[in-house]
């Protein structure tokens, strides 16, 4: 993009400045909680007057926070394990069907990703209430899977479109069942896209708060739900500590996956 302005130094400088501003705007809100989390004060104040690790201790020492963390990680893992294989099979079907049917199916499948979260949460609450599943971890899992499937599909559909289907036919003719052909031929060749899909599904669940607030009970609160609740009840820098940890973990995982894709 920058090659388009090789001669005009002023334009180049302005472009760099503008890009830097946009990046700063995107990153600053995330960065600003980092110093807050190391504050020694009981209040969220910026900049902190003294530094300590007490809010990290508070987080790791609290049974409630730890339970929420376990719930979130379990939920994220289960979501990825259910949503990604389902999405893969759905994408294979849509890829093979082609035409209007496939486009229609794709539209239906992607609906949850464009529906307002609150609407989905209310709908899910009613459906789960009828099944007496409100307040269960299973109920939240259903909601997260519904949200994660479109995310996984968005990653997998283009990857499948590039895949040479003759290979599956070849494998079938050589004696492979459907399961063997998918497991031995499609999965290994789509592993990078599948890895991205797993990561995205996991993060979708980890980040989700509205469904969790509606459906999860007190005992199986997810981390985001507990964060919202604690913000409402008492504001202390534990939130900042969690956010910092969270950001660090996500950045590390995403960097790891992206770098693996490059190599």
């Amino acid at each position: 993009m920058l090659d388009a302005y090789p001669e005009n130094r002023l334009a180049l400088a302005l472009l760099w400045a503008f890009s830097a501003l946009v990046l700063a705007f995107l990153i600053l809100p995330t960065i600003v909680v980092v110093p807050l989390s190391f504050s020694a004060s009981d209040l969220l104040e910026f900049p902190p007057r003294a530094y300590s690790l007490r809010w990290y201790e508070n987080f790791f020492g609290s049974a409630t926070w730890m339970a929420a963390l376990r719930t979130s990680i379990t939920l994220g893992t289960l979501t990825a394990l259910i949503a990604v294989p389902s999405a893969l099979l759905a994408c294979i079907s849509m890829n093979r069907l082609g035409g209007k049917t496939a486009v229609t199916l794709q539209g239906i499948l992607l609906t949850p990703s464009v529906t307002p979260g609150i609407l989905l949460a209310i709908g899910l609450f009613i459906v789960l209430a009828v099944q007496h599943l409100v307040g269960t971890l299973f109920g939240v899992l259903v909601g997260h899977v519904v949200l994660a499937i479109p995310v996984a599909c968005i990653v997998l559909l283009p990857a499948l479109a590039r895949f040479d289907w003759n290979q599956v036919q070849a494998a079938r003719s050589l004696g492979a069942s459907w399961a063997r052909a998918i497991g031995g031929i499609i999965v290994p060749q789509l592993r990078i896209s599948l890895l991205s899909a797993i990561l995205m599904a996991f993060l979708t669940s980890l980040d989700e708060s509205v469904i969790s607030i509606f459906v999860a009970s007190g005992q199986n609160s997810t981390l985001p739900k507990l964060m919202f609740l604690s913000l409402r009840d008492q504001i202390d820098p534990t939130i900042a500590a969690i956010s910092t940890l969270w950001t660090a973990i996500v950045v590390i995982v995403v960097l790891f996956v992206t770098l693996r894709q490059k190599s």
Binding site: N166, A170, I185, Q189
Partner: peptide
């Protein structure tokens, strides 16, 4: 035994 036009070998 089928031989496909584009060979359909498994690149992995």
């Amino acid at each position: 035994g089928i031989v496909f036009q584009n060979y359909a070998l498994f690149p992995h």
